[in-house]
Amino acid sequence: MGKTVLVIEDEPNIIEAIGFILSRDGWRVATHSNGVDAVEAVRARAPDLVILDVMLPGRSGYDILRDLRAGEGTSDLPVLLLTARGQTKDREMAESYGASRFMTKPFSNAEVLEAVRDLAGG
């Protein structure tokens, strides 16, 4: 236990909800709410798992994911992609960019927990 999850999301209420669920389950939760310097934030914090929103101010989640996959040390990092657009096209794009898991908002809390545990080996 004590693994770190970095939540990159711009909606404060959603951050609050995910933070609550994960910390209740024993995760350490860090948050970041800006797309521009998200990659740097990941490097700096070196989390065990990233929960990444697609629609971020400044930069798209897909771009951030592509940079992470291309970057040293983050190419294998589990990334749970969250999107508010539930179209097939978005799912395909997420897979092509190398997302470990893809989840459509709104999600059930149990689903998120399960995915996080799966991905980070909780």
């Binding site: 909606e11 209420n13 959603i14 609050e16 909800a17 995910i18 609550f20 669920i21 508010a84 657009r85 539930g86 459509t104 908002k105 709104p106 999600f107 059930s108 809390n109 149990a110």
Partner: peptide
């Protein structure tokens, strides 16, 4: 979906 997400998450909590 965005407000829906918060509503659903906190309702479940």
């Amino acid at each position: 979906r965005t407000p829906m997400t918060s509503i659903r998450a906190f309702s479940e909590i």
